[in-house]
Simulated scan of single mutants.
Amino acid sequence: MLPFTIEQFLGVFASYNRAIWPAQVLAYLMGGLAFSLVFRKGRWSNQIIAGILASMWAWTGVVYHLIFFTSINKLAYVFGALFVVQAAALIYFAVSQRHLDFRYMERPAGFIGVALVLYAAAIYPLFGLATGQPADQLPMFGVTPCPLTIFSLGMLLLTRQPVSRWLLVVPFLWSLVGGTAAIFLRVPQDWALLVAGVVSLALLIWRDRRMAPAG
């Protein structure tokens, strides 16, 4: 049983979207830059992409979860902390470990990665509008948990080196939490979140094992 009503849940989105405008536009610009850098590599591309993803996770953890979502669900304190941990992990592995190398590769992981990015940015909001969700109550790209998780999973699939399993823990957990809750909360576009989490995890594990040196 959820500790809040559907009306309260959607009301949080409405209040949040009004309060942070025009951050949604900036999130699209940042997401577009991150995606373009996968195809147009530069010296600092990996760090810029990781920095953009980290800023989105930190923002969503602090502003959405801790400031807004805690008003109807005290578990949001835990969710917010996990999102901030994910942001820190992205910075750590991109800067300290240099284990994130974003680049499009023509293989199943690359194809599905592009599909998830496009779903999170374009199909996700259109799906919501098509099913009757008011525009002001839409979970928006880059600043709310579910589209951010789908986008991040897509971006992690667009890498050419093994990805640390630690970077997959929070996105996979949220795919279970958010994907399951979508059934009860009238957010049908989040049904894809469950699939995205399971498929991305399986693909990355399979791909990274194939890339690991023999012996």
Score class of each variant (00 low, 15 high):
residue 82 L to C: 11
residue 72 I to H: 05
residue 51 G to E: 10
residue 54 A to P: 09
residue 78 V to L: 15
residue 41 K to I: 14
residue 43 R to M: 09
residue 50 A to I: 07
residue 35 F to Q: 02
residue 60 T to R: 00
residue 41 K to A: 15
residue 39 F to D: 12
residue 56 M to G: 13
residue 46 N to L: 09
residue 81 A to V: 14
residue 62 V to N: 04
residue 40 R to N: 11
residue 54 A to V: 02
residue 33 L to H: 03
residue 32 G to F: 05
residue 76 A to V: 00
residue 45 S to T: 12
residue 41 K to N: 10
residue 73 N to M: 06
residue 43 R to K: 14
residue 55 S to I: 06
residue 74 K to I: 12
residue 65 H to L: 04
residue 66 L to E: 11
residue 60 T to D: 02
residue 71 S to C: 08
residue 34 A to Y: 08
residue 44 W to M: 15
residue 59 W to L: 05
residue 71 S to I: 14
residue 53 L to D: 05
residue 33 L to R: 08
residue 64 Y to C: 02
residue 35 F to C: 03
residue 55 S to H: 07
residue 40 R to V: 15
residue 59 W to T: 12
residue 77 Y to I: 11
residue 66 L to P: 01
residue 44 W to S: 13
residue 60 T to N: 08
residue 47 Q to W: 07
residue 74 K to G: 11
residue 57 W to L: 05
residue 80 G to K: 03
residue 45 S to R: 14
residue 43 R to L: 07
residue 81 A to K: 02
residue 63 V to Y: 04
residue 69 F to W: 06
residue 80 G to I: 00
residue 56 M to K: 09
residue 41 K to V: 14
residue 32 G to N: 13
residue 54 A to M: 01
residue 74 K to N: 13
residue 46 N to Y: 07
residue 33 L to E: 08
residue 39 F to R: 12
residue 61 G to W: 06
residue 62 V to G: 01
residue 79 F to H: 11
residue 71 S to G: 12
residue 48 I to P: 04
residue 47 Q to P: 10
residue 79 F to L: 14
residue 43 R to N: 03
residue 54 A to H: 02
residue 73 N to G: 00
residue 69 F to C: 01
residue 66 L to Y: 09
residue 78 V to W: 09
residue 59 W to I: 05
residue 39 F to L: 10
residue 49 I to H: 05
residue 69 F to T: 00
residue 81 A to H: 07
residue 76 A to S: 11
residue 45 S to I: 11
residue 46 N to Q: 08
residue 68 F to N: 00
residue 52 I to W: 02
residue 38 V to P: 13
residue 40 R to I: 12
residue 62 V to I: 13
residue 36 S to E: 02
residue 40 R to D: 11
residue 70 T to Y: 00
residue 38 V to Q: 13
residue 41 K to M: 12
residue 35 F to V: 12
